[in-house]
């Protein structure tokens, strides 16, 4: 680990000032990803600004929306009664990730900004465009079982590993940001960039811009929602494919509304806009779900070791939505 200074901020303004004072400052949440990356010297901040003192409040509002402080711990969010009742997919997504210990440490803001688990990103002996822009990508012809089938580029196929973000994407969460130039709000699905030819630039955050809160707009039908995660062991493993979904079926069996996002398949939490659009107004049948899944995955590209994810993703989408529709896949 490279030496760094440490300071603790109790509010966003202080945090931004502290971060602005050092050329390569990073915000420190639970540290579950950043500390590991610093040990690997993939992250070499000269200053850490501890933001775990920022808001840890979860505010469930009367209008059905929820405001979540960025320093809220993953466990607290998953266990919150309003989240469990109104947004079960979010609870389930968080609980499907990592371990009890890590969920107790990890913050909401940190979870959103965690970095990829691509094997070649983690190994400084390998070529990686994300770590060293222009170096090349050893994952493309290497072990890419965990890598992306959607939204990847020739330069990078690394996936975003968060489970929580998949649910946030499905829920159309808004991020509250604060920076030197003031505050702004963006959709979570707009935060992460696709790699194109600049995989080192992962988000649209400005320098030292800080996530201060996550807002979940009301979505009454999300009470009927779930998260399904497929992985290589029964627990404590990153997703090969995951799906967060909420479904609103009218009495006549047509789909009034649907939310669907995928994890493990793309460089960002992948909102399945295409499938959603096809499904609104369609019958809530396994056949319709499969057709929508086919459409969502139409542009998927498999690499040497991850082509299976294309069919797997289709199946997971179909089975998850079918289950929510009350049927059996």
């Amino acid at each position: 680990m490279t030496p760094f200074t440490y300071a603790r901020a109790q509010d966003a303004q202080t945090a931004i000032q502290l971060a602005g004072a050092a050329p390569a400052a990073r915000y420190l949440g639970g540290g579950t990803n950043l500390v590991d990356l610093m040990r690997e010297t993939i992250e070499t901040p000269d200053a850490l600004v501890d933001v775990t003192g920022l808001s840890q409040a979860i505010e469930a509002r009367d209008d059905g929306s929820i405001l979540i402080g960025a320093a809220v711990k993953n466990t607290a969010l998953a266990a919150h009664r309003a989240v469990r009742q109104h947004f079960p997919l979010l609870s389930r997504a968080i609980l499907a990730g990592a371990s009890g210990q890590i969920r107790n440490m990890a913050t909401v803001g940190g979870n959103i900004l965690q970095r990829t688990r691509c094997l070649y990103f983690y190994d400084d002996a390998a070529r990686c465009n994300k770590r060293s822009p222009g170096a090349g990508c050893d994952a493309r012809e290497g072990f890419n079982r965990m890598n992306a089938i959607l939204g990847a580029s020739d330069a990078c196929s690394a996936t975003h590993p968060s489970d929580m973000c998949v649910a946030l994407a499905a829920l159309d969460a808004t991020l509250h940001l604060a920076g030197a130039e003031g505050t702004r709000r963006i959709k979570l699905v707009e935060l992460h960039r696709l790699p194109d030819d600049q995989p080192d630039i992962e988000t649209i955050l400005r320098p030292h811009e800080l996530i201060t809160a996550v807002e979940l707009p009301a979505l009454p039908f999300a009470a009927r929602s779930t998260y399904r995660k497929v992985r290589d062991r029964a627990s404590y493993a990153f997703a090969l494919v995951s799906a967060a979904a909420a479904l609103d079926v009218a009495a006549d069996g047509t789909i009034r509304d649907v939310r669907l996002a995928l994890g493990g398949v793309a460089p960002k939490p992948w909102r399945a806009f295409k499938a959603e659009a096809m499904l609104r107004g369609a019958p809530a049948t396994a056949a319709a779900f499969r057709t929508a899944a086919e459409a969502e995955l139409a542009e998927a590209v498999g690499l040497s070791g991850n082509s299976f994810k294309i069919e797997l993703a289709k199946r997971v989408i179909t089975a998850t939505l079918t289950e929510l529709a009350g049927g059996v896949a």
Partner: peptide, 12 residues
Amino acid sequence: ERINACLALAVQ
């Protein structure tokens, strides 16, 4: 609360 002490910077 349980945490992984290896990922925790002591200063925090």
